[in-house]
Amino acid sequence: MRYIYSTLGKLSAEQLGMILPHEHVFVDLRTPDKPGYGQADTASVLALMVPQIEAIQALGVTALVECSTGGVGRRADLDLAVSLATNFPIVVPTGNYREPWIPAWVHSADEDELFNWMLAELTTEIEQTGFRAGWIKLSAGDDGITPLEARILRAATRAAVETDALIGSHTIRGSVVMDQLDIIEAQGGSPARFLSIHTQAEPDFALHRAIAARGAWIEYDNVGAVPVAESTDLILRALDAGLGEQLLISHDRGWYDPALPNGGVPKPYTVVSTELIPLLRARGVPEDTILQLFHRNPFRAFSRH
């Protein structure tokens, strides 16, 4: 049986419904060497983010995938605090972002150390939170994967093979995604356990097809950042191309930003529910396809044994 591992423990498909596969509760996009990096008062985070979670709970969303990883202010303890305050599961990653957002300890760690760290977070707990990482979040440079990013990816692939965890990567260019898939396959991993995050940013739709043809997931995660009709058109193009079984859809929104006063002004996670799905229905997308895109696909992607 497969489960999603969350802040509230492991959850089966029967316990979940709609899942948002790419959002952020807390992010710090300053590099880890900056003063105050990743620091925030728990009460301040709760005040800002609990209403955002409650808004999607009221719309029937049952879980959210946190995409803040090492290097961009992952705070699993704050994810847990928000989760407990709302009784809402959040799926938190292990892993690390790309250069220059890579902490000093990751720079100096060898592949075995990185593998052991990710494996421990996936199988035991993240830091001292009492819950396991649900997946692995990485990134690669726009101009190609660097040697350090490749080392992190090789370690991540070993951890994914061991646990069946999904590897998701913030990778803007489809050609770099293909290079990542080459590394994964050379390491004995499966492209079927890889997610190309921000696929919509690749203008060549042929590369969307090519990534999916390798067996990987693709993700359109800018809903609300562009006109909803534009997102709808791209989703319909993917469905017409037969990519529906490998497609994830989300906002890439939120979040508490410790670099801004009181965490800034969050962007709501509600646009998919209130605008996109109604427009997809109006454009003739069947109800079973809606369930596939927003219920079944996210569970299949992020669940593991």
Rank of each mutant, 00 (worst) to 15 (best):
Q57C: 03
S273E: 14
Q187R: 14
Y220T: 04
S169P: 02
L293C: 03
F205R: 14
V226F: 11
S68Q: 06
E54M: 08
I172L: 11
A58E: 10
A58F: 01
G38Y: 09
H208E: 12
G144V: 01
G130R: 00
G174D: 02
T274S: 13
E54I: 00
E54F: 00
E275G: 07
I184Y: 09
A159G: 03
G71A: 08
A155N: 01
A155T: 00
A229V: 13
Q246A: 14
R296V: 03
S6H: 01
I290L: 14
V92I: 08
G60Q: 13
L84R: 15
F299I: 07
D179S: 14
A13S: 11
L48P: 01
T171Y: 04
H24I: 02
A43Q: 14
L78F: 02
G9N: 01
S196G: 06
M49F: 12
Q57F: 02
E287H: 06
R214I: 12
Q52F: 05
L293N: 05
A55G: 02
L276R: 11
L181F: 08
N262W: 02
R193Q: 10
P203A: 01
A85D: 03
R75M: 04
L20Q: 15
F194A: 07
D164Q: 13
I4P: 00
E275M: 12
R283N: 12
D28K: 09
I19H: 10
T163G: 02
P21I: 09
Q15S: 13
S303W: 12
E54C: 00
Y256N: 02
V65K: 10
F299E: 02
I145C: 05
V65I: 15
H251P: 08
D233S: 13
L243Y: 12
A109F: 02
S196V: 04
A213K: 13
R283G: 07
L8A: 04
